[in-house]
Nucleic acid binder design. Structure first.
Length: 511
RNA sequence: GGCGCUAUCGUCUAGGGGUUAGGACGUGAGAUUCUCAAUCUUAAAACCCGGGUUCGAUUCCCGGUAGCGCUACCA
């Protein structure tokens, strides 16, 4: 197959947020298309008008863009227009197409109307379970004479359209699982159209169902490789039968294994936020998520390279590298990758991403003086090395904006440090020196004074630094003083309510 | 119940008829630092079970077990 005729698609339903499983499916489709020089199609499966929402569709598109997964054909970003020659790319706009195909199958005798009621089908199903047989439709309506059909139609009886599948084993090829087979007695005649009815008071052509439309769309859109979740394996024989009924070429299938939660159950909301927008809000970088998702069920040729940028992933990606065992989602590994990309990101980018976390503590975004912006860069950069994700920064940075001496003392460990006589000496000496200097102090001033205090008092090590750290930040751990002192002092100079070093020390020195 | 998919360190995975079974995350220890983080060094940690094939099986075949999926006139 020529690589430029290879076409893949991502076909989400706009009935909810884009979560990890679907995001990985989209990613693998995208990586494969980009690696091989094929086309990546985005199709919106909004067949179910009750559950589909345009707000979800918009969010979906935004999430794909955020991940950097651009598509060649499909809905455009900003309006309802579409790009590509084989559209529409929203199923809700393809109803006529489906109806034409149904009429064709009916006319050719490959499909038939099934007037069985839900109750009858349920009864049949229960009987099959009781007998230990596969639950398949018995095919009662396969042979119904024209007069009965006519009469049922006239009476407005509800029916579905079923495809009559051949009485032989259905086989198809899955590129990572090999040849898959389904015996005829395990596959029902698939329903193509549901809830149709005839009658004089306005007949209804019914609504085409998922297995049917997905097949028509994939075929008509020229999809050559169907990469999707393995929950569709059992649907595939029905779809293959539909391809064959129309005489269409059956594509290659690649079924991706399920992503599980730590309890080895299917990953869901129960396991925490697993939607792309959730990850974005928590402060994960898209390249970290892309890298992690790529590794969840795929590996490079020798399995050793693990840190891969989107470009490197495109270069390295092959279908052969996909594994077929279900993977458990591991937040720790995502975190480690995110920390890696956080270190690589520019301060300006990180500051922009963090700004909204500090709503209320900072001036409005459009009227921010440059000095505040520059200070904010430094403040954020100071905390980045110690977080897994940007969303952890506000809690860590809270002391920058507000210090409560009583709250700090209420902590037992803090108090035991502060209560030492040596601690008071250090703080008193340091406070005196800070008062003696008019302007903002620098890291160099601080270092020099601490050395002086060490020499004059003989206090050193933790005993020297711990009380200072607690007085400045409220905890005994945090950024190193070389970066902390300037952030505090420059922040205080901004006059936006940030206490400076002198003010902080004063609250801990008994006068 | 039926049908299907899967099975290597705690987790993601590489590998493959004879290997010291490799890497990454996490974990333990050490180094460094005023603390935490980062960084560096280092350690522990795996072939689901039973048969068969074979000189030899973790690898191939069969069965079992377990996990997951599907089992709709949802998508």
């Amino acid at each position: 197959m020529e690589s430029d005729s290879i076409r893949v698609r991502f076909a989400p339903s706009p009935t909810g947020l884009l979560h990890v499983g679907n995001a990985r499916t989209a990613l693998y489709n995208w990586l494969f298309a980009r690696h091989i020089g094929g086309k990546f199609v985005l199709r919106i499966e909004d067949l179910d008008l009750d559950r589909s929402k345009t707000s979800f569709e918009k969010q979906l598109i935004q999430d794909l863009i955020w991940l950097g997964l651009n598509w060649d054909e499909g809905p455009n970003e900003n309006d309802l227009s579409e790009a590509g020659d084989v559209g529409p790319y929203r199923q809700s706009r393809r109803m006529d197409l489906y109806a034409t195909h149904t009429a064709q199958l009916l006319a050719e005798g490959k499909a038939y109307r099934c007037f069985c009621t839900p109750e009858e089908l349920e009864e049949e199903r229960q009987q099959a379970i009781a007998d230990g047989r596969p639950q398949v439709y018995g095919g009662r309506c396969r042979v119904m004479n024209k007069f009965d059909i006519k009469e049922n139609l006239l009476r407005g009886k509800t029916y579905s359209v079923r495809l009559q599948i051949p009485d032989r084993t259905i086989r198809f090829h899955d590129m990572i699982r090999g040849q898959l087979e389904f015996a005829p007695e395990t596959v029902s005649d698939p329903i193509l159209v549901r809830s149709a009815h005839g009658g004089t008071a306005g007949a209804s052509p019914g609504v085409p169902v998922y297995n049917y439309v997905v097949t028509i769309d994939d075929a008509l859109m020229g999809i050559t490789h169907v990469i999707r979740g393995d929950d569709h394996i059992s649907n595939t024989p029905k779809q293959v039968a539909i391809y064959e009924a129309f005489g269409w070429k059956v594509p290659e299938f690649i079924h991706l294994s399920t992503i599980l939660g730590p309890d080895s159950e299917r990953l869901s909301k129960r396991h925490g936020a697993t939607s792309m927008s959730g990850f974005r809000e928590m402060g994960y970088l898209p390249e970290a998520l892309v890298n992690y998702l790529a590794l969840l069920g795929w590996s490079t040729e020798h399995g050793e390279a693990e840190i891969l940028s989107p470009d490197q992933l495109v270069k390295a990606f092959t279908l052969e590298g996909i594994t077929n065992n279900p993977a458990i989602f591991d937040f720790e590994k995502l975190n480690s990758l995110n920390r890696h990309y956080l270190k690589l990101a520019t301060p300006a980018r990180l500051a922009a991403l963090c700004w909204d976390y500090f709503g209320g503590l900072l001036p409005e975004k459009d009227e921010v003086p440059d000095a505040v912006l520059v200070w904010f860069f430094h403040m954020i950069a100071m905390f980045v090395p110690s977080v897994n994700r940007l969303g952890e920064i506000p809690a860590k940075a809270a002391f920058i904006f507000h210090m409560d001496a009583n709250l700090t003392r209420a902590d037992k460990e803090n108090e035991s440090v502060l209560a030492l006589e040596s601690a008071q000496r250090v703080l008193t000496e340091l406070a005196a020196r800070v008062r003696s200097k008019p302007g903002p102090l620098s890291a160099a001033d601080f270092t020099q004074w601490m050395t002086e205090i060490k020499n004059s008092t003989g206090i050193s090590g933790n005993e020297l630094y711990d009380p200072v750290r607690i007085a400045l930040s409220g905890t005994s751990s945090g950024p190193e003083f070389d970066t902390l002192i300037p952030v505090l002092e420059q922040g205080a100079a901004l006059k936006i309510g940030i206490p400076g070093v002198g003010q902080r020390l004063a609250a801990f020195v008994s006068s």
